[in-house]
Computed example of a mutant assay.
Amino acid sequence: MLDHLAYATPTLDDTVAALEKALGVRAAEGGRHPGLGTRNYLYGLGGRRYLEIIGPDPEQPEPDGPRWFMIDELSGPRLVNWCMRPADLDATVAEARRHGVDPGEPRAMSRRTTDGDLLEWRLTMPSRDPLVPFLIDWGTTVHPADRGLPEVSLLSLTGRHPDPGHARTRLRAFGAELEVERGDTPGLVARLAGGVVLS
Rank of each mutant, 00 (worst) to 15 (best):
G37N: 05
V101F: 13
R85F: 03
L135W: 01
K21V: 14
H99L: 10
M125E: 14
P103Q: 13
W68N: 01
R85N: 11
I54G: 02
A22K: 11
G30F: 02
R160Y: 01
L171A: 13
A6V: 14
N40Q: 12
L149H: 01
L171K: 06
L123M: 12
W121I: 01
L188S: 00
L178E: 04
A28K: 13
E52H: 07
R112S: 07
L157M: 07
T113I: 03
A173N: 11
P34H: 14
E151D: 14
E52V: 09
D102F: 02
T92A: 13
E59M: 10
T92Q: 13
T114K: 11
G55D: 01
L157Q: 04
E151T: 14
T11P: 01
M70N: 06
E73K: 10
W138G: 00
G37A: 11
E181N: 11
D115F: 05
G37R: 08
H4E: 06
I71P: 01
G44F: 03
G159W: 00
L45I: 09
E59Q: 15
A176F: 10
A6D: 05
P162W: 11
I54M: 04
G24F: 08
V16K: 04
W82S: 01
T124S: 12
W121Y: 09
A27N: 04
R39H: 10
A94P: 05
G46A: 14
W138S: 03
V132A: 02
H161V: 13
E105I: 08
W121A: 00
R49K: 15
G139D: 02
R160C: 03
A28T: 10
R172S: 12
R26F: 04
P133G: 06
L188A: 02
E181V: 06
D3K: 02
G195L: 13
S153T: 15
I71N: 01
